[in-house]
Design a protein around this nucleic acid. Sequence first.
DNA 1: CTGAAAGCGCTTACAG
DNA 2: CTGAAAGCGCTTACAG
Lengths: 331, 331
Amino acid sequence: MATLKDVARLACVDVSTVSRALNNTSYVHPDTKARIFAAVKELSYQPNVLAQGLRQGKRHTIGVVVPRLHLTLFADITQSIESESRKLGYATLICHTEDDPVIEKECLNRLRNGFVDGIIIAGTGRNGHLLRDIHAGGIAVTQIVRKQEGSISSVIADYDACGYDTVRYLYSRGCREIGLINGTTSLAPYRERYNGYHRAMEELGLTETCATSPMPGNNFEYGYQCTEDLLNQNPELDAIMAAVDIQGMAAIRALKDRNIRVPEQIRLVSLTGHSIGGLLETTMTSLEIPAHEMGEKATHMVIDEIEAPSDNKPSVQHLVFSASLVERESS
Amino acid sequence: MATLKDVARLACVDVSTVSRALNNTSYVHPDTKARIFAAVKELSYQPNVLAQGLRQGKRHTIGVVVPRLHLTLFADITQSIESESRKLGYATLICHTEDDPVIEKECLNRLRNGFVDGIIIAGTGRNGHLLRDIHAGGIAVTQIVRKQEGSISSVIADYDACGYDTVRYLYSRGCREIGLINGTTSLAPYRERYNGYHRAMEELGLTETCATSPMPGNNFEYGYQCTEDLLNQNPELDAIMAAVDIQGMAAIRALKDRNIRVPEQIRLVSLTGHSIGGLLETTMTSLEIPAHEMGEKATHMVIDEIEAPSDNKPSVQHLVFSASLVERESS
DNA sequence: CTGAAAGCGCTTACAG
DNA sequence: CTGAAAGCGCTTACAG
């Protein structure tokens, strides 16, 4: 690999002049510039980003910390973050935590040391202290999907409204026995979906039927099990709300296995649409979360924070996106 | 952030001694060592990986270049690469190309310059020259899923066998009019699936019914459209093979929309199982690709190449994994 | 067993 | 308009 020095030698100038020409950081004589660019081309010179980073204290890299990718909203979000970052000249380092606080801690510790300028995280909520430390240490941080720390900016969807509005919607469709499949309420999104559900059910004078667990619950088996639980708890059930798509898919399957027709006997709505609802055999009504926009926005927020002068950092910002109901066959 | 210098000052030794103590690179007196570790702890010193990388010419990072994540095999593979890399002390930089050669080129160019020590790629096949250049320049490269370059190591599944065996399987179930939904044959995996299909059909004296396109074809609409094409081409169709899961899902839906029962009227098999087949309303028979093992293996191959001394690099290796048939309701 | 020095490839005041 | 020099934070021969 050619270095600045090689270019400088070939163009018969000092390395500093080459650097200035390449970065357009001060006037360089057109003739000199031409010689330099010719040399760059001939040697197919590419700057060493490591050295740039060391010198400038910037990596031009942002870390993305998410539980997992497959069949979750995080696949869309991660991809959106990556493509937006790339446009803005940043690379994306990814870590999957599987919602394990120990793995998360390990990832955060690696990221803090020169690996990245900023972090976008959907965290477990168990490493708050570390996260605040990292942020205080000068690394930009934005929370996505899960707002666990009030002192750190966030981009989330309005999960409370998701729960509330869906109950109201199902009520308007004639449902009175509405069950909820939820994940652990120790994570904010699940907690808030429940809050919304609870408030609406109370206002309407309906009785709650809930299935939940101390685990995150982001898998098919869990959703299947919860569906059975709900049916056992309340044989009169006429609607199921699933916190995430994969639970909704599991519910469809569990109902089919019991010969219960969707939506004729039980209506089903997923509270986290991420582009799979429309691809199913029975297409699934869902609240579509604007994953792409959220990823883009979080990327801009974290990069704005990175690039702001240290004496004028943007203030903490909590952004809430609305989900939109997409009606499909399941309701 | 504390630096080596800070630690050295606090422990009253030279930075070189601190470095040696921390890296266990030569004997350091136990007392000195103790002072150093105390200082490290007090300052909660963490080495700056950028500086280490610059000095050693190593980043301890590998780049992953894939078309996309959502609803594809690549989500599983990427996650497997990331967790395996992390265990081995490497971080993972990710790029999505959307199968666009221009984006791919841009990504590869960024990766080559100090960003990564190695690359694992499922490429478009349109930047072969660049890829060989990068490899020749000393960056380890392993191809995954798509083997486009014979001179670069690869980890793939036996797609030819997937096509061949599936025809044989469907034939044994009584099918004689077997259609194939495929992607562009300019990508090796699609081409080989077709080859296997073609050979088996010929051996059995059956007539081919194919739907394909110049595009990669990795989406639902395409699969839906191809299903309609196949049915128009051959109203007697009694089986459909879909190259990838998403096409299989689209086929199920298209058949449902035409009131064709699966598997009674048409049997369906996906040639690329990646853990979604079992989660569907009608569970889908598929050839399960060992994504996790493939990701792991590719990670080891690329890291072995990175860590081998430059005068003794491992030779090119092409690994082929077998897929295994998982029978479910759709066949 | 440890220190002083050079250098990885760049950028950026400082002169002129 | 351009060069010489310092320095980002490390590691590693080289002495002693």
